[in-house]
């Protein structure tokens, strides 16, 4: 027997007359929507607690600075910002500035670890919800790479680069034809998120249980290899957020609303 998601059946309520109906298209399965929004507080807490853990033993180090004795790039970046702020941070605490504002803080390893474990388990649960929603609602179909993707991705990039200049000179600038829910760039970005989630989870377990899950640690080369992959995954999540928010705002209310209510009124139109 076929999986229900493979059967596409659209019921048409015969009790509705033409005048009382509105035409919509289903967008995101309710579990996908739930997981999407749950990710927001979960990833926030994972990042702030994760940076608190990172502070205890940074991976990316340079030779100790002669003046501050700091070896940590993140601490240096924070100190550089704090020096130009009007606030009165004591000189010996300048290097804490980044961690105090973007993490749970310095010398807070124990609370940071507790929070990180809690939200790591929640993150994995959220990932399961997302997968269940993708499979159940058939949303995974829009994430599978297509042969036309490279060409379409170039067309989309050309479109985005030309968008503002063409608007300025007042020339029409057409959105490339997109078949389906996502264009090629979106497909790549939205597929990369669960994959990086998986990578963050695997590297997290590799350093959490390197003895019992030694095979996982070896998959990342070494213990520190897993730490670096985990750190990069965090930056990917953060880097995804900026264009994601900009494009959703640019695309309009329908797109934003569809992630809350699960339907869209834009039928057969390209959307971000």
């Amino acid at each position: 027997m076929l999986h229900p998601s493979l059967m596409s059946v659209t019921p048409v309520d015969t009790s509705l007359s033409d005048r009382t109906v509105v035409t919509i298209v289903r967008k995101h399965h309710r579990l996908v929507r739930l997981a999407h929004w749950l990710n927001l507080p979960i990833l926030f807490m994972l990042v702030v607690s994760g940076l608190g853990i990172y502070w205890a033993s940074p991976v990316f180090l340079h030779p100790a600075d002669r003046v501050t004795a700091s070896r940590d790039y993140l601490a240096d970046a924070g100190a550089a910002v704090a020096r130009h702020l009007p606030s009165d941070v004591p000189r010996d605490q300048l290097r804490f500035w980044f961690y105090r504002h973007f993490s749970v803080g310095v010398y807070a390893l124990a609370p940071a670890l507790r929070l990180h474990w809690l939200f790591a388990y929640l993150f994995m649960g959220c990932g399961l919800l997302y997968l269940a929603g993708l499979v159940n609602g058939g949303g995974y179909r829009s994430l599978i790479p297509r042969r036309s993707d490279p060409r379409e991705a170039l067309a989309m990039m050309r479109y985005y680069f030309g968008l503002v200049p063409m608007r300025l000179v007042g020339r029409p600038w057409l959105h490339p034809r997109v078949h389906g829910k996502y264009n090629a760039l979106q497909r790549g970005a939205y597929l990369s998120m669960p994959l990086f989630g998986l990578l963050a989870m695997a590297s997290g377990w590799a350093m959490h249980k390197p003895a019992q899950l030694g095979w996982l640690e070896r998959l990342f080369g070494s213990y520190d290899g897993a730490r670096i992959v985990h750190f990069i995954a965090m930056w990917v999540f953060i880097a995804f957020l900026v264009p994601h928010i900009v494009l959703v705002i640019g695309d309009g209310w329908d797109t934003m609303r569809s992630m809350i209510v699960g339907w869209s009124k834009r039928i057969g139109e390209p959307h971000e």
């Binding site: 659209t10 309520d13 109906v21 509105v22 035409t23 919509i24 298209v25 058939g138 949303g139 179909r141």
Partner: peptide
């Protein structure tokens, strides 16, 4: 590809 059949709704 994902089904995008429109649905009529009150």
């Amino acid at each position: 590809p994902e089904d995008e059949t429109p649905v009529w709704i009150d």
